[in-house]
Design a protein around this nucleic acid. Sequence first.
DNA 1: GATCCTGTAACTATTATAGTTACAGGTATG
DNA 2: CATACCTGTAACTATAATAGTTACAGGATC
Lengths: 154, 154
Amino acid sequence: MAISSRFSVAVHILSLLEISKTERLTSEFIASSVNTNSVVVRRIMGMLNKAGIINTSPGVARAMISRPIAQISLLDVYLAVEIDHQDHLFSIHDKANPNCLVGKNIQHTLEQRFTQAQRAMENELASVTLEQIVTDLLVQDSSIPSTMTTINKG
Amino acid sequence: MAISSRFSVAVHILSLLEISKTERLTSEFIASSVNTNSVVVRRIMGMLNKAGIINTSPGVARAMISRPIAQISLLDVYLAVEIDHQDHLFSIHDKANPNCLVGKNIQHTLEQRFTQAQRAMENELASVTLEQIVTDLLVQDSSIPSTMTTINKG
DNA sequence: GATCCTGTAACTATTATAGTTACAGGTATG
DNA sequence: CATACCTGTAACTATAATAGTTACAGGATC
């Protein structure tokens, strides 16, 4: 299976919070932009909160991004929501036969190489900031000047 | 979820085939080294066969690696067995609200960045050959000179 | 022809994801 | 302070991927 859509949803949420930072967005409203359930949004925002990327307050729609978005990388977001992959993106079969040369050494050998591949991916994510993402979103959207006014809440 | 262990098992199988290339390895025997079921091995070998990395013959234990292992990269193996990830390692939520600036543009924006991260990972895998893996396995195993003679078939 | 092996279908168990309902408890405002 | 709204979270469901297992048709070999 691939890396979950929690990652892309998290970036979506953060972009919304930034672009609409003067407004108070409810999880219900954010969910209507993502097109999912509000609990899914609150769940992911809970992860972002726990990771220190946003600050949320129980009972009130006032999620604040905790630092300038130029200082938040995609890797920060990725690590916040892809908890299972923090350690290892690649699975390695772990019960190989120790009486076999290959079985005995394959795990360690692959771990080295897989870690390197994972690091390359993570470095790429680390090189992109939320600021760049928001800029991309705004540049791509040349036709609609207003940001959130026309959102369809249905 | 992480990248499946099919990848690591596939590298295991190929390493075994290379190191024991003078012998005829049955899927049952390979399975005892990987410590899994022989059907799992045959399934993965079927994928490697379909990808042109090995040549198998129905009914006979004679899988042959199709070209010198210096010409087979980890990426080749990865693409052979991680069919779902060939296109996209990262999932992107795909029904975002088109009436919202973020929802309208997030998919395309993230696709660009995610593809770059995926490419970085794949390039790393492409830079490692099966020959290097087999060398690693042999170097790490300084104590046991014989390769497969002591394998425990139980 | 007997035996061994591969290839593959079919089934099960396990796990992750994502959506949903429900609700306890915080917050705010009139 | 009462009402209304919102968050945080538990619990459940549906779906899908992975991996293991049994079973068997059919190829290969002696």
